[in-house]
Write a protein that binds this DNA or RNA. Structure first.
Length: 879
DNA sequence: AGCACGCCGACT
DNA sequence: GTCGGCGTGCTC
């Protein structure tokens, strides 16, 4: 039996399976998806079995054997192995990088090298002038030696005491002897073994089992001598128990010490065993059981379509477009119930920030113990335990952030992606996947249904539902299509690209449950404020609004998408601005620490009192950050209680929840923060939402800037007036005429999309093409420029050879353009200059493969001095 | 990623 | 005439 193994070395040259012999003792256990330890180029590495080969297919004689099977149950399944392969091609990464993204950190074992002193040194024993046991004891020195080689006595004793001892530990402790250790291993004085250990073992606890022999136990309770009162108490308690009780719980609950319980165990009256235990982060929390709620007509229609699609066991995608408060979650819950009833499992993806206890409660309340929750705030061990519940089929529903898409279920029927437009579904590190793409691909494998839920769908998803060739519109879609006069607009001159997702069914939920109106939104033109003599960051309107809320004891939410105190520091005498020495970006002033900080690389320096360039004292701070708003609020409204929520105040574990819970208990008047205040909050006393500057996200160098602004404004506006008290929203802006501001004021998604699609079409951006952004970086600018140009030229040559280097304006079905190279929006980051090429393409063009091929000559070989190319495949457009 | 093999400078 | 620099190439 021969296993094909992907070894855990993320490099281009090892990105293929290597073949290993499987010895008969493991043969019955090893499967596709098994995690193994294999010898590889002189060391032992972890790897995954991706398949098996026939004897005839491989070069015989040169095969090594699999060293160790690392888990009794394979952590991955064949479909995930295949999915990782697909990811490696789509996102231009190695197979192992994709595989590593799928397993919990607890299983990312590293091979550890252990050494011990060789007992049988065979032939050497004869060739030396040594005593019988193979040791040469020099004049009382007691040195272990072999020929010219000898180990210092201290080292030898240390090894003897601990053996086998980790090589890394020895090297750390005795760095001066690392060369000697190497020689000792080579010469056979020391022997090495390798073993892969998991980062976290299954947690074991001592558990006390109720008496097996009840009669004997009852008799013992009765006969127990008076001085053994504690034992009697413990035994009587255990007689009442049906289930085993953790020892610690028994001791704490009954005020006993372990000795009394041990004594009972010794008498054979109780049984104490080590059992596996899950670290349940929700232990001890009671979840109120909930029943399905009655659905509105629209909810019911959406649910019906989803349920039918799940039943069909055909892959399908649905876009559930519902405004905040329209009851999407109840539709999800009932669809999941349907899915479970068919013996299939469901995955629910939620943005990390929305994965609050309340959110979890809704699912646990409906499905109880059938739910596993995966999120980044869990410890490695907790996460592993939740993951094992899925793998061991103890749960039917997995709810979690991005990476929960890899939940190792065997029969998935439904994948729900809530707030599908959220950018947190895109992973910024390699593998740079988008959970939505991966979901569609997994659904294809399982014949499952993907439900994308959002009040403001991404243009890509919306295009797949409404504009894609062959897309069907659901019956309730009047409101949605009114913008087109009931007709699909004619965009036939340019193909809409929806990539993998050929079409999606649109399920609109345009009404709030209970018919509560959307809050009124007022736009304030800050230019007019300035002309009217108001130089404050608060318009008169917002100032008055805040004052009213304070007076009435209601709460306000303020959004400013910029943390810190001020965005840049400039000398008014000479024009000097403080920039990061490692990045081409201005430094942000932080008031509390009186420091200048780079928000990209974290560089921090003390804020200058005088200009470092000309010595002038006219150093001034410009631009407004959350810290400055906080200060200004305190000045304007003495005694006001403000909670500031941004990256600077939420780094600590659980701080995010803590701040929100304080606000929920009305211990503050204002919640001030960056975009994290816009998501999913629901507080009854919030009646005012203010956006301090809507423009901050509008002028970013990002083709999605308008879309992001619209989504942010719409979302934050939804935070007001969710309960009895009516809400008010005030948006301050310097560009009140911009369509993303105007349409969000009217909660008018369709008009926004229509305008935005026009722009995207003119400029050839998704969904009218697909994009890959390649970023190249190097410490030396001239080298970077030269390699970037070579890369772009090579890519154009390859595209021309493939016959696809055609303008996107053409009517060709397959087209590809290479733009650049140009300097990146952040031209220097962490001491590396950055250039980028944007690749736009459509149709059946395998742009990822061409990029990979063009990049190859610049990525291989030793890294020193070469331009390292970071390849960023922007996948949101692949969908 | 490691680690070995392999050709050119400053040392016993 | 040898130790050692890191450039290229391989790892089942």
């Amino acid at each position: 039996m021969i296993a094909r193994v992907i070894v855990d070395v993320p490099s281009r040259q090892t990105d293929r399976p290597f073949d290993y012999r499987v010895d008969s003792d493991m043969a019955g256990w090893i499967e596709v998806g098994s995690r193994v330890a294999v010898p590889f180029g002189g060391r032992t590495l972890q790897g995954f079995v991706v398949g098996f080969a026939e004897e005839a297919e491989v070069e015989k004689g040169r095969l090594k054997a699999v060293a160790e099977l690392l888990d009794p149950m394979p952590p991955l399944l064949p479909d995930l192995i295949e999915l990782a392969r697909w990811m490696s091609i789509t996102y231009v990464c190695t197979w192992t990088t994709a595989l590593q993204a799928m397993i919990p950190a607890a299983l990312k074992g590293k091979a550890e090298r252990y050494v011990y002193i060789t007992e049988d040194r065979g032939e050497y024993a004869d060739s030396r002038t040594a005593d019988q046991d193979g040791y040469e004891r020099g004049s009382g020195q007691g040195q272990l030696s072999l020929g010219a080689l000898s180990l210092p006595i201290e080292l030898e004793q240390f090894i003897r005491q601990q053996e086998p001892v980790k090589l890394s530990l020895l090297q750390e402790r005795y760095p001066q002897w690392s060369g000697l250790l190497k020689s000792a291993l080579r010469e056979g004085l020391l022997t090495e073994t390798v073993s892969v250990r998991n980062r976290v073992a299954v947690k074991k606890v001592l558990t006390v089992f109720p008496p097996d022999d009840r009669e004997a136990a009852e008799a013992a309770v009765a006969d127990m001598p008076a001085r053994a009162a504690k034992q009697r108490e413990a035994l009587a308690y255990m007689l009442e128990q049906e289930e085993p009780v953790p020892l610690q719980q028994l001791l704490a609950g009954a005020g006993l010490s372990a000795s009394s319980v041990r004594a009972l165990a010794d008498k054979g009256l109780l049984r104490i065993e080590e059992t596996q235990q899950d670290r349940d982060p929700y232990a001890g929390r009671a979840f109120v059981r909930t029943e399905p709620l009655p659905l509105t007509e629209l909810q019911s229609a959406a649910f019906g379509q989803i349920a039918a699609a799940v039943r069909s066991e055909q892959q399908g995608t649905m876009l559930l477009q519902g405004v905040t408060g329209s009851g999407k979650t109840e539709v999800y819950l009932q669809a999941i119930e349907q899915c479970i009833m068919q013996g299939r499992q469901a995955i629910v993806l939620v943005p990390e920030i929305a994965l609050t206890p309340q959110m979890v409660e809704r699912f646990k309340g409906r499905f109880g113990d059938l739910v596993a929750v995966l999120h980044s705030r869990l410890s490695t061990g907790e996460r592993y335990d939740e993951w094992r519940k899925i793998r061991e089929k103890r749960v039917k529903v997995a709810i979690g952030a991005r990476s929960a898409i890899f939940a190792p279920f065997e029969r998935i029927g439904l994948i729900i992606i809530d707030e599908e437009h959220e950018t947190s579904y895109k992973q910024e590190e390699s593998p740079k996947y988008h959970a939505r793409d991966v979901a569609v691909r997994r659904a294809e494998q399982h014949g499952a249904v993907v439900v994308l839920g959002s009040a403001t769908p991404s243009l890509e998803s919306y295009a797949a539902a409404v504009l894609a060739p062959g897309s069907r519109h659901s019956s309730g879609g009047e409101g949605v299509h009114a913008a087109y006069g009931g007709q699909r607009p004619d965009y036939s001159t340019q193909a809409v690209e929806t990539g993998m997702l050929q079409r999606a069914v649109l399920l609109p939920l345009p009404e709030r449950v209970g018919g509560r109106p959307m809050p009124g939104v007022e736009i304030v033109d800050m230019r007019a404020e300035l002309q009217g003599g108001n130089r404050s960051m608060f318009s008169r309107k917002l100032h008055q609004g805040l004052a009213d809320r304070l007076e009435r004891g209601e709460q306000s939410v303020l959004l400013l998408n910029r943390r810190g105190y001020s965005t840049f520091v400039m000398c008014r005498s000479c024009g000097y601005t403080a920039g990061c020495p490692h990045c081409e970006i201005s430094l942000t002033f932080h008031q509390k620490s009186r420091a200048l900080r780079c928000h990209y690389c974290g560089h921090t320096e003390r804020s200058p009192e005088t200009c470092p360039s000309c010595g002038s004292e006219h150093i001034r701070f410009f631009g407004t950050g959350t810290q400055r708003v906080e200060e200004e609020l305190a000045k304007l409204f003495p005694g006001i209680r403000v909670i500031r929520m941004d990256v600077d105040t939420t780094t600590e574990k659980g701080s995010h929840e803590k701040l929100l819970s304080r606000f929920g208990k009305r211990q503050a008047d204002v919640l001030l923060g960056t975009q994290m205040v816009a998501k999913g909050l629901d507080f009854p006393y919030v009646t005012l939402v203010g956006v301090i500057a809507a423009d901050t996200s509008l002028h970013l160098p990002d083709f999605r800037a308008a879309e992001k602004t619209f989504q942010l404004l719409t979302q934050v506006a939804g935070r007001a007036g969710r309960h009895e008290l009516p809400g008010e929203v005030i948006i301050q802006t310097y560009t009140p005429e911009h369509y993303s501001v105007l349409t969000s004021q009217r909660h008018d998604y369709e008009s926004f999309v229509r305008e935005e699609l026009k722009q995207r079409r003119i400029l050839s951006y998704p969904p009218y093409c697909r994009l890959i952004l390649v970023t190249l970086s190097h410490e030396q600018l001239p080298q970077l420029v030269s390699v970037s140009e070579k890369f772009a030229e090579e890519l154009r040559v390859l595209a021309a050879e493939a016959g696809v280097l055609v303008s996107l304006d053409s009517r060709e079905a397959d087209a590809m353009e290479v733009l650049g190279p140009v300097a990146s929006p952040i031209p220097r980051l962490k001491d590396r200059y950055r250039f980028q090429c944007m690749i736009k393409y459509r149709g059946a063009v395998d742009a990822a493969a061409l990029v990979k091929q063009a990049a190859r000559p610049h990525m291989e070989g030793s890294a020193a001095g070469k331009v390292l190319i970071g390849i960023d495949v922007d996948p949101q457009v692949i969908l």
